[in-house]
Amino acid sequence: ESAQIRLVLADLQKQEGNTEDAIKNVSIAFEEPSLDVDSKIQLLAEFRSSINKADLQDLSLTLAQKLTEVHPDVADAHAVYGDILYAIGKKNEARKSYEKALTIDESNFALWQNTLQILFELNKLDSVIVVSENALEVFPNQGALYYFNGSANLQKRNYEEASMMLEQGKRLSTSNLGLVSAFNSMLGDAYNGSKEYDKSDRAFEAALDYDPENYAVLNNFSYYLALRKDKLDKAEKMSAKTVKDNPENATFIDTYAWVLFMREKYKEAKKVMEKAFETGNVSAVHYEHYGDILYKLGDVDGAVEQWQKAKGLNPNAELIDKKISDRKLYE
């Protein structure tokens, strides 16, 4: 009946290659409340690293689940179970385990981070905002929490809320230049969304000062400048560099074509946009932009054909019906 003796026996059996009996003895030991939870967690880690992957999933889940059943009031037990669920792709179940752990011990910052990461991956943005706000009540000086909150608000187009959270997070992250750059990148998007263009430009510039080859920033900055018809020479240089270094990225190619379009370089824009179609990874925006370019080149029939393709992929695109019915470009 001794859990410790069973663990010694299991270790010997594992060394002899008798994995099946070793697992049985470990499982029995895990059901014994007298064996402390830290020892079980350590043992679980050792087994996960020493058996083949085919056995890993079932064994890990079984032992971790027993861990939570025998020690239901121990946060680490639920946290480990969440880690294993997440590792095998069961994100929603992992989230529930982390949340259970947090009800027991909300002082574990890693649990908040793990929960938020999963919520983000599951695209539960409202939950990200709520959970990060709860976490900030416990950890008001953790920049990462402002990052999650600001990012979720940004994706929901709550630009003012996003800017406020991101600025606060940036102030708290001055010792981590990489994180500061990430904040600046999102602030560029947030301030552009709220039409605070000077602040947007400064944020993007700061992000590029840290990493001149941050292609997402180069692309977004170029596109926003093109939409505003501002600093188009700068936009063209940034976008050209992005496409040169990422020749198969249809989104970056579309931005470059659109910058050229705004510079009234329609023939060049047409050639560039056709390269986007060659990637085989295009969207409604590509067809609509291509139609706009063809219209400027005098090919109205071709333009309408492309706009119709765009409508087929995105019936709710702004102005697309008006463009098609009037056979005219509206910007």
Results as ranks from 00 to 15, higher is better:
Phe261Val: 04
Asp301Thr: 11
Lys275Val: 02
Lys199Arg: 12
Asp21Thr: 04
Leu125Ala: 07
Lys14Asp: 01
Leu177Ser: 15
Leu319Gln: 09
Ala182Gly: 04
Ala216Met: 13
Lys234Phe: 14
Val74Tyr: 01
Ala64Gln: 01
Tyr330Met: 05
Asn134Arg: 05
Lys296Cys: 13
Ile51Met: 15
Asp105Phe: 04
Asp83Ile: 14
Leu7Lys: 08
Ser200Met: 04
His289Leu: 07
Asn18Glu: 07
Gly89Met: 11
Ala203Arg: 10
Tyr159Thr: 14
Ser283Glu: 14
Tyr295His: 13
Phe148Gly: 00
Asn123Asp: 13
Val243Ile: 04
Ser132Ile: 00
Tyr197Ser: 12
Arg202Asp: 05
Glu160Thr: 13
Lys311Arg: 05
Ser60Ile: 05
Pro72Cys: 12
Arg263Met: 11
Thr68Phe: 02
Ala10Asp: 11
Gly298Ile: 06
Leu9Trp: 03
Leu44Phe: 09
Val26Gln: 05
Ala144Pro: 13
Lys328Met: 11
Gln15Arg: 12
Asn184Ala: 04
Glu121Gly: 12
Ala152Pro: 04
Ile324Asp: 10
Asp230Lys: 13
Asn192Gly: 15
Thr115Asp: 01
Phe277Asn: 05
Ser239Ala: 03
Lys40Pro: 03
Glu236Lys: 09
Lys328Asn: 08
Val128Phe: 00
Ala152Lys: 02
Lys199Phe: 09
Asn92Ser: 12
Ala257Thr: 15
Leu225Arg: 12
Lys237Pro: 12
Leu294Ile: 00
Gly188Tyr: 01
Gly188His: 04
Phe120Leu: 13
Asp254Glu: 02
Tyr146Leu: 00
Glu278Val: 10
Glu196Arg: 07
Arg171Thr: 09
Gly280Asp: 02
Val259Lys: 14
Leu218Asn: 13
Leu116Asn: 14
Met165Glu: 10
Glu305Phe: 14
Pro315Trp: 09
Lys323Trp: 03
Ser27Leu: 03
Asn114Ser: 08
Leu102Gln: 03
Tyr330Pro: 09
Leu85Glu: 05
Leu56Lys: 04
Val138Arg: 10
Leu172Val: 00
Arg6Lys: 07
Asn249Gln: 13
Asp321Gly: 11
Tyr256His: 14
Leu63Glu: 09
Ala75Thr: 09
